[in-house]
């Protein structure tokens, strides 16, 4: 699972895809997840990291991660070649 290499994310949570010209905004947790995915961490590793850093439970993280990754796929921000 990789975020497409040309996807740029700024500190303010602004995501820009040069290939399509589309832009998105993400909240701070969303930005943290995208940063980690760009560092080639697996979804499991990212989930674990989120669970460690935030006041929540693993079931919630897994459910929300699934949904978020599905949105990233829907918006074509994820390389489908893996």
């Amino acid at each position: 699972m990789h975020i497409k290499s040309d996807v740029a994310i700024s500190d303010s949570g602004f995501v820009f895809v040069p290939a399509t010209g589309e832009s998105f905004t993400v909240n701070p947790i969303g930005a943290a997840i995208i940063h980690m995915l760009k560092e080639n961490k697996s979804v499991e590793e990212v989930s674990k990291q989120i669970f460690e850093n935030y006041k929540t439970d693993m079931a919630t993280v897994e459910k929300d991660m699934n949904d978020f990754v599905a949105m990233l796929k829907q918006y074509s921000l994820i390389d489908t070649n893996d």
Binding site: S10, S12, G13, F14, F16, S23, T25
Partner: peptide
Amino acid sequence: ELKEFEMISTT
């Protein structure tokens, strides 16, 4: 510049 659009969109 995209940066300007980003600024108004996010802040």
